[in-house]
Design a protein around this nucleic acid. Structure first.
Lengths: 341, 341
DNA sequence: GAATCGCCCCAAACCGCTTTGGATAGCGCA
DNA sequence: TGCGCTATCCAAAGCGGTTTGGGGCGATTC
């Protein structure tokens, strides 16, 4: 069942049927209802491919996922971000197309999406310091929203980010208030923009209390259980070991916890831990009382909002949109006063 | 730059240019090379929307992701499966479109994908007992491959699955060989097909040694850290507590580990644990020596293979394809002889 | 009563490609 | 020389919608 056939059944022209279904004013209300009813009755759904060609719009947005030729890993927060963004797309009848490409072909992937007309815009994930994708997308004229920010970018661009700097600054201050002075930072890879900002916040908090950040208490690695464990174990073996940890993610935090337990230390009493909690649906930080004290910001909600920004940007191309979210600091069972204090 | 313009620049008809680029034989080799060169020079990429309309193929496959209106969660293995499948799609110039829909609209989502012509086929995720999607897709005539199987399905269908039954049977046998008799099962939700099969394998192993499965030692819940912790804590509080755990996932396993530690028990010495390891890129089971003894099967590889099956099914519609993968049993540090033995 | 105006509807062009059904020209062969 | 064949190429018709540019007709205006 296509438009032409439906039209002929109704004794109308395709033009009128199309207009009736799309809510154009130049069609009689009675006619419109007749058309709507017939469309429903015959289970008519306009062919997306034809709409796309006729309108010149893809009705789709792209997410490019670069994938490990070198050392990177599929980001665990990705699934939740996608779930959030996907809800927005579905509600607006947009398709979400994912391009999984070797990371040395990322640029080609963006160019392809644009020149082949597969999408109307893209979300940029995991921005890095001086991320080249911003200039690239500017160049090829593909609307985009960055999830995060890219320190060093010179062009204006749309983004949605968590205030990572302030989150980690507040978390560090909280630990300082509890009397901790040897505070470790188990950070993500520091070519990632968010990791840089978190480190800055952490350092700012220490410096404000006249403490000098100790390089031995700072680790930067992938946010895996393994890496978290490795970093914590190393630091706990130091002669002047930390009494508190600031950790980049829930998963890293589980590695840190494992290291604590191996060392016979009790989290929350002997050692305090604060993590960043992306509020992942499959990795909740406790049910009633949070396991970890945490800076929390839902990445799924971020996905929802970033998608909305992008759709808006596509619908009315205008000035860039920027949105900064604050993470909450939530109390859990993993922090307490410094035992040495 | 479109086909018509490229053709006119070359002094050729669109027909010939199209054929030249698509490798049809009725075009002179010299002409073809001239066309190819011009296409590259002018950075010509055929418009996907037009190709799709003209050929009647979507050149895309769909993944429908039902999302929590009730209690389900975004599956953590999903990201890796997608990454694997996505690689296959990219290599074959297919798009991957994800539909995130409220779970009570899943059927409508599949129907929509078909009738609007957005995709040429779909991958079905997380099949349940008597999963209705199989009959549905059969009905509407959309090619599909199921990741997993659906016990109770009457129609033939294509699937790719891990031999969950045998994996858990072997794991249980391994624990039995170590002298354990009180073996707990921390399973996934048992309306999920894979969970049912795992339980069956577990029970078969016990029964074969004349042991009766104890309902108190069987839990079935979402595969989260929280749920794993909850189940293990409950079981460890039993008068006749288990000496070994068979756990459905890495993440559940971390919850179990937490419960062990809270109870002052050392994993691998006091209590043995075997998990199922999907070999997730962000959740590796140790680097050199695995943390957990595990039944392992890469879900990413499964994604790659399932996608290949589907593309093949789309290209040459034929008999159903079915593929059963065996999980490896890998030794880690979480198992040892039963201390009571 | 004629000109004007809205309201509804339609025919046809168009989006950018593929594909069908020739057309033309050169060549071998009788 | 004439005919059939093959190798190349092209015009035009789709694919299934949207959108432009009218057209007919009853009501309003003067």
């Amino acid at each position: 069942m296509n438009l032409k056939e439906l039209a002929s059944r109704l004794g109308l022209s395709p033009t009128t049927v199309s207009r009736a279904l799309n809510g154009y004013p130049e069609v009689n209300e009675a006619t419109r209802e007749r058309v709507m009813a017939a469309a429903k009755r015959h289970n008519y759904h306009p062919n997306t491919r034809a709409i796309r060609l006729a309108t010149g719009r893809a009705m789709a947005v792209g997410h490019v996922i670069p994938v490990a030729t070198r050392h990177e890993i599929v980001n665990p927060v990705f699934a939740d971000f996608i779930a959030g963004a996907g809800e927005t797309y579905s509600r607006n009848d947009y398709d979400m197309v994912l391009s999984v490409v070797p990371d040395d072909q990322e640029e080609a992937a963006y160019r392809g999406l644009k020149s082949k007309g597969n999408v109307d815009g893209v979300i940029v994930h995991a921005p890095k310091l001086n991320d080249p994708r911003i200039a690239l997308l500017h160049d090829i004229g593909l609307p985009f929203v960055v999830h995060g920010r890219a320190t060093g970018a010179t062009l204006p661009y749309s983004w949605l980010d968590v205030n990572n700097r302030r989150a980690f600054q507040r978390a560090a201050e909280f630990l300082l208030d509890l009397g901790h002075t040897r505070i470790a930072l188990v950070n993500g890879l520091e070519f990632m923009d968010f990791a840089i900002r978190r480190r800055t916040g952490y350092e700012a908090a220490l410096t404000a209390r006249a403490l000098t950040p100790d390089p031995a208490l700072m680790a930067s690695d992938e946010m895996t259980e393994i890496a978290g464990h490795r970093a914590a174990r190393r630091m706990l073996a130091l002669p002047d070991r930390p009494t508190a940890f600031l950790v980049a993610s829930m998963i890293s935090g589980m590695g840190v916890r494992r290291a604590l337990e191996e060392a016979g230390l009790q989290m929350g009493r002997d050692i305090s831990v604060i993590i960043h909690d992306d509020d992942l649906s499959y990795m909740k930080n406790g049910d009633d009382v949070p396991i970890f004290t945490a800076t929390r910001s839902s990445v799924r909600e971020a996905g929802r909002m970033a998608a909305e920004m992008l759709l808006d940007l596509i619908a009315n191309p205008g000035p860039v949109q920027q949105r900064l979210l604050e993470a909450e600091l939530i109390m859990g069972q993993s922090t307490g006063p410094c035992p040495r204090a």
